[in-house]
Design a binder for these strands. Structure first.
Lengths: 206, 206
DNA sequence: GGATGAAATTTCAGACTCTGCAACATTTCA
DNA sequence: TGAAATGTTGCAGAGTCTGAAATTTCATCC
């Protein structure tokens, strides 16, 4: 019906699963946007999709997780894309490219993401979970970045720092994007430029 | 009895409160270190301190919060210290100073923090909550940083980025510190140097 | 087409988290 | 010393999340 592109090879079974998952996410997001996090129970969400609340928990470990919009694949794809970046590039430059790419994907779902960010704004506890993407995901990304660097402890240490800073910069860009109608890619590019220059203070308009 | 220094002006009532709070934190930390987050109930923690579990919730909104080691004052102090940094310094340099200071405080409580970090390692969900310190705290810090910069949207934007990156760098340093026995201040200084230089890849040992 | 096995869903019971409220105990202070 | 504040407790109750068993749905092979 809509976007999805890799649905074709799946049987009815898996298609329904994806559909249910998506429906739960959508319901969770809209309901929470309307009534607030505390104003919506898992029961409500399940009800809206017409499944049992137990089923909800088969898809998401918690109410919050249904709101995060972190698909199981997203992370793996990020790492794949990183692997395709030429090895000559610095770690920071490589992450910049990959996250610019990511920015475009987010931009394509602008409405959905704005709704999500609005929900986050009202429930800051969620914000934390989102971008750090779970220590897990970040750790795997760090490993991938470390693979691009000379081996040894200093390489790992650098990978940890660069990755963490890059993700943070991305997060800052997304938050800014949610308040102004500028293409996300541009904002991401901008924050990365700042970081690459060592974050100097802006010059006072002379 | 122990450390605290500003306890003297308080009445018995408030002293007891602080004591209870500290005892709850201590109990939570040691119990969770022993049995894992899921293996400890609020009931257990309250029991260990000999108060009702209802009382536990009078002090902390959730089990997790008792583990974070974020005192109500810590944040305010951070901001105060920031205000005392000469205005000529760049935002990044100012944050560097303040966080170096913070590093020493953390170093003083090394044992406590190592225990805490061990708990975090085993329960990554906590990690997220900790350093970002809640969107709330970060927001206030951003405001304080913005106060150092020329007014206007670009100043705010810069403050958001610098603050987020600085906190992230600090976090990375703390995590590294938890795995090696090097003074935290040194590690913090190092990550800030990297950031100030734009995070270049380390040179391969020629 | 219908039987068979695998996987998803549901139902049910139960442990745990967290909140509001009213009674109770203690500290503070006039 | 007695009244006002403030902290603690027990209780009731809503909500989250998990495990296990029963049931339904789907893919497949004959």
């Amino acid at each position: 019906m809509t976007i999805v592109d890799s649905t074709e090879e799946l049987g009815r079974r898996d298609r329904k699963k994806l559909e249910t998952r998506a429906a739960l996410e959508r319901a969770a997001l809209t309901l929470v946007a309307e009534r607030g996090l505390a104003g919506v129970t898992v029961e409500d969400i399940a009800e809206a999709v017409d499944v049992s609340s137990r089923t909800f928990f088969n898809y998401f470990p918690s109410k919050e997780d249904a709101l995060l919009g972190r698909s199981p694949r997203a992370e793996a794809e990020l790492i794949e894309r990183l692997a395709r970046v030429p090895a000559e590039m610095s770690a920071l430059a490589a992450l910049r490219l990959v996250l610019l790419d990511e920015a475009e994907r987010v931009q394509e779902r602008r409405e959905e993401w704005l709704l999500r960010l609005k929900v986050f704004e009202q429930n800051p506890s969620l914000l934390l979970k989102l971008f750090s993407g779970g220590a897990e995901a970040e750790r795997r990304l760090v490993a991938a970045v470390a693979g691009r660097l000379p081996e040894g402890p200093s390489g790992t240490a650098h990978a940890e720092l660069v990755t963490a800073v890059a993700l943070t910069a991305f997060r800052v860009a997304v938050l800014r994007w949610s308040t102004v109608d500028i293409p996300l890619a541009g904002l991401v590019d901008e924050v990365f430029s700042q970081v690459a220059e060592g974050l100097p203070d802006p010059n006072p308009p002379a």
